[in-house]
Design a binder for these strands. Sequence first.
DNA 1: ATCAATGCATCAACTGATTGATACAATGAT
DNA 2: ATCATTGTATCAATCAGTTGATGCATTGAT
Lengths: 139, 139
Amino acid sequence: MTLQIEVDLTAGVPPYEQIRSQIVAHVSAERLRVGDRLPTIRALAADLGVAAGTVARAYRELEQVGVVTTRRRSGTVVAAGAVAADILARQAASAFVATVRAARLTDDAIVDLVRGALLEPTPAGDRQEGSEVAHPDAR
Amino acid sequence: MTLQIEVDLTAGVPPYEQIRSQIVAHVSAERLRVGDRLPTIRALAADLGVAAGTVARAYRELEQVGVVTTRRRSGTVVAAGAVAADILARQAASAFVATVRAARLTDDAIVDLVRGALLEPTPAGDRQEGSEVAHPDAR
DNA sequence: ATCAATGCATCAACTGATTGATACAATGAT
DNA sequence: ATCATTGTATCAATCAGTTGATGCATTGAT
């Protein structure tokens, strides 16, 4: 069996991102294990009907996060640190859940909260420590 | 005395988003309180050197989330529903989403991650309406 | 040494998001 | 009733991100 990866061009999510996340899911579910080899860029690209550069980007990002390692002729394999990256994400989730639970939110509300945050277009820092200020009130 | 709001055009984050998050920060820090009036769209736009539509978008999104209410001639004021705890929870969610997105997870994966975290520490009412993914969740 | 397989780099075209400008609609004050 | 003030809608221009195509660089096998 080959890896089950699919791309939906109408999904709104960029294809390279779909590929990337599905591979992460496969690693997380242990359908891919450390040392397993991924399809070659060209093979997967042809299979999915996308350009090679698209798959290459997915692989590149996976390598930056430490999920895979690539060598020129040997191909792309699941890296030893793949699990660690996954754990980091889980830790972030636990910390977040602890924080919002302190605010006595229900589980449903928490999930909704995350869904709402996911809808916001901000991919980068939402951080801003304000300066002092007074109330605008008005006329 | 006006609200301390600044826009950095080189920040990568869109200006309307910077405005939105800074106002949220002001409400969260109680520099803006329920009933306080925000600057008019035109005034703030002129002050920041951006177009009115940019500020308008920030205000619109704030209204959708329930942080402010706007009326045509009366202007835009901080809404009653904009409770600090709620706002803080939203920011926690935003921060979490930003963090885990940096790990390049897809939206569905993020929601799954949160669901998994919700199951762990406190076995409270962990009932979600049936979603699509089961995700056995190893490790 | 050569070759072929594999990932990498580059770049023009395309697509969607964001902005800025302008005109419109509603509404409270007079 | 009128007007000035405020938010809203629209739309072309611009900008950032993504893709697809092509060629290059590396490297293991022979």
